[in-house]
Amino acid sequence: AEKTGIVNVSSSLNVREGASTSSKVIGSLSGNTKVTIVGEEGAFYKIEYKGSHGYVAKEYIKDIKDE
């Protein structure tokens, strides 16, 4: 049951290796980017990222929809 969301930041949002603010940053997404959410862990969504997965803070994702 995948969902999509939109990155809701003015600059960019860090994509992390794990569901923690201390996890390594593996990339970033600019505002209004559409993401595919494959799961959630605590305050983070697990998303599809560059052929693999990454984690982003839930508070910066809006317009969550079921695909």
Rank of each mutant, 00 (worst) to 15 (best):
S11P: 15
V7I: 13
K58E: 02
V35M: 02
T4M: 09
I26S: 03
E59M: 09
V7S: 04
K46F: 07
S11C: 05
Y60E: 04
T36F: 14
S23I: 02
V56L: 05
V7M: 02
K58C: 04
T33E: 13
G54I: 01
S11Q: 10
S12V: 10
S52Q: 13
G27F: 13
T36V: 09
K62T: 15
K34W: 12
V7D: 01
K58Y: 03
T33L: 06
V25I: 11
S22C: 06
T21P: 06
K65E: 10
V56A: 04
A43E: 15
A43N: 11
G5Y: 04
K3A: 09
A1W: 09
E41T: 05
T36R: 11
T36D: 07
N8A: 15
K65Y: 11
N8S: 11
I64A: 08
I47F: 02
L13D: 02
A43G: 12
G39F: 06
I47H: 00
Y45D: 01
E59V: 09
S28F: 10
Y55V: 01
S10M: 11
T21G: 15
A43K: 15
I47K: 00
V35I: 08
I37V: 05
D63P: 15
N8V: 09
I37Q: 00
D63Y: 11
S30V: 13
K34G: 04
H53T: 06
V35Q: 01
S22I: 11
E40V: 06
I37W: 02
E17L: 06
F44R: 00
I47N: 00
S52T: 09
Y45A: 02
S12L: 12
S28H: 15
D66Y: 10
Y55H: 02
G51R: 05
E41V: 07
L29Q: 02
E40F: 06
V25M: 07
V15H: 00
G39N: 08
S11R: 12
E41D: 14
E41N: 07
G5W: 05
S11A: 11
N32V: 05
D66K: 01
A19Y: 05
S30D: 15
K65F: 10
E67R: 01
A57D: 12
S28A: 10
Y45M: 03
G31I: 05
G18L: 14
K34N: 10
S28R: 12
E67Y: 06
V7Y: 02
I61L: 07
I26A: 02
S11G: 15
K24S: 06
V38M: 10
F44L: 03
S12E: 14
A43L: 12
K34L: 12
S12D: 10
S23Q: 04
S12C: 05
G54T: 01
S10L: 14
G31K: 10
V9L: 10
Y49V: 03
S22N: 15
G39Q: 05
V38S: 06
R16A: 06
D66W: 12
E41I: 07
N32T: 08
G51L: 06
G51I: 04
V38P: 00
G51K: 10
Y45R: 01
V15S: 00
I64S: 11
I6V: 15
E48R: 13
S12H: 15
K62D: 13
Y45N: 01
V56R: 00
Y55W: 13
S52L: 15
V15C: 02
I26G: 01
I26Q: 03
T36S: 04
S10G: 11
I61H: 01
I64H: 06
Y49T: 02
I64V: 14
Y60R: 06
S23K: 04
S10I: 15
K65I: 12
D63T: 14
S30K: 09
I47R: 00
E40Q: 11
K3T: 08
I26C: 04
S10K: 15
K46R: 09
E40H: 09
S11W: 15
K24Y: 07
T21Y: 14
E2W: 14
Y60L: 12
Y55A: 01
N8C: 05
S10Q: 10
I6L: 11
Y49M: 03
L13A: 06
S30L: 15
S11M: 15
V38W: 10
S20K: 13
V38Y: 11
K46N: 03
G5A: 04
V56T: 02
H53C: 05
K65T: 10
E59Q: 09
H53P: 06
E2Y: 11
N32W: 08
A19P: 13
Y49Q: 01
A57V: 10
N14Y: 12
S30W: 09
V56I: 13
S22V: 14
G51V: 05
T33W: 06
S20T: 14
D66Q: 11
E17P: 01
G27R: 02
I26Y: 03
V38D: 02
K34R: 07
G5N: 03
K62N: 14
